[in-house]
Amino acid sequence: MMNRDELQEQIVAILVDDFEFENPGLTDNLRDDHGFDSIDAIELLAKIEKMLGFQLAREEKEKAMSIRTINDILDYIEAIQASHKS
């Protein structure tokens, strides 16, 4: 289980390398500031699954649709990790 700093490092690297984000900030609006859309969200979920090493349930994926910032992504992954641990 990764801590928040480790998660942040990996997520930012994915956003920069695979989604061509420039200078991502933790509170940036993903859509307005970086053009991140629903297609990107699905692609990111697939990468998060590989990063965590397990598949997400459909209802877990649907919760991701309310994500707006990188901080939201990190909150989301932490909650997923916690629920899979328990």
């Binding site: 297609i39 699905i42 692609e43 697939a46 699954e49 590989k50 397990f54 598949q55």
Partner: peptide, 9 residues
Amino acid sequence: SEFSSIGAV
């Protein structure tokens, strides 16, 4: 495999 490589698009 556990993970599909079929893309969203």
